[in-house]
Amino acid sequence: MSIVNLPSFRVLGVQTRTCNADEETLKTARLPLLWHDVYTELVPELPADAPVYGVYGGYESGQDGRYTVTAGAVHKPEKCNLDLVEVTVPSGQYLVFTGKGKMPETVIRVWLDIWDYFKREDAPHQRAFTTDFEVYRGREETAIEVSVHIAIR
């Protein structure tokens, strides 16, 4: 885990609104379909070394409320049939958690670590619940690197 100060940047992608409770069952989960669309329609059109982003924002009430997820990239490929929206990741201070391995298990494990970290009474940082984001690097399903950036106060 590390702390970084980042400038703002934009991400173009597809978007949905959900909550963690909805994501616990396949019947109500929206994120698998969102990521499926990104990895079948957008990612094949990106350069092999281009990172893929998941941007979390519009938090209603902390980690248990509704939030908006935008999955995409910093550049729009020439060939893309998806209706993309643009979001801006604001500049600021982020606490970064990382993992590498098979998806989605690895990113789930990283988020569990994040939630455990912020549950601790002695955690030196507090989540801002403004904008958080994931960065995925690599295309090999069993060796994707993910870094999750959590906005802190």
Score class of each variant (00 low, 15 high):
residue 93 Q to L: 08
residue 24 E to Y: 09
residue 59 Y to E: 01
residue 2 S to C: 13
residue 86 E to Y: 08
residue 29 A to S: 14
residue 29 A to M: 08
residue 57 G to R: 14
residue 129 F to P: 02
residue 8 S to T: 05
residue 46 L to M: 11
residue 143 A to S: 13
residue 115 W to N: 05
residue 96 V to E: 04
residue 6 L to Q: 10
residue 126 Q to R: 15
residue 51 P to E: 00
residue 82 L to Q: 05
residue 26 L to A: 14
residue 145 E to K: 02
residue 40 T to K: 05
residue 151 A to Y: 08
residue 83 D to M: 05
residue 97 F to N: 02
residue 36 H to S: 12
residue 108 I to P: 01
residue 27 K to Q: 15
residue 71 A to E: 02
residue 3 I to G: 08
residue 92 G to Y: 00
residue 131 T to H: 07
residue 132 D to F: 06
residue 85 V to D: 07
residue 89 V to A: 00
residue 128 A to P: 03
residue 97 F to M: 00
residue 143 A to R: 12
residue 135 V to I: 15
residue 11 V to P: 03
residue 84 L to Y: 04
residue 75 H to S: 13
residue 53 Y to S: 04
residue 66 R to D: 10
residue 69 V to C: 05
residue 103 M to L: 15
residue 46 L to H: 01
residue 129 F to I: 09
residue 106 T to I: 07
residue 5 N to Q: 14
residue 1 M to S: 08
residue 42 L to Q: 09
residue 143 A to V: 07
residue 88 T to C: 09
residue 63 Q to Y: 02
residue 139 R to G: 13
residue 72 G to P: 05
residue 107 V to K: 08
residue 138 G to K: 02
residue 105 E to Q: 15
residue 18 T to L: 07
residue 63 Q to I: 08
residue 104 P to V: 15
residue 132 D to P: 05
residue 49 D to C: 01
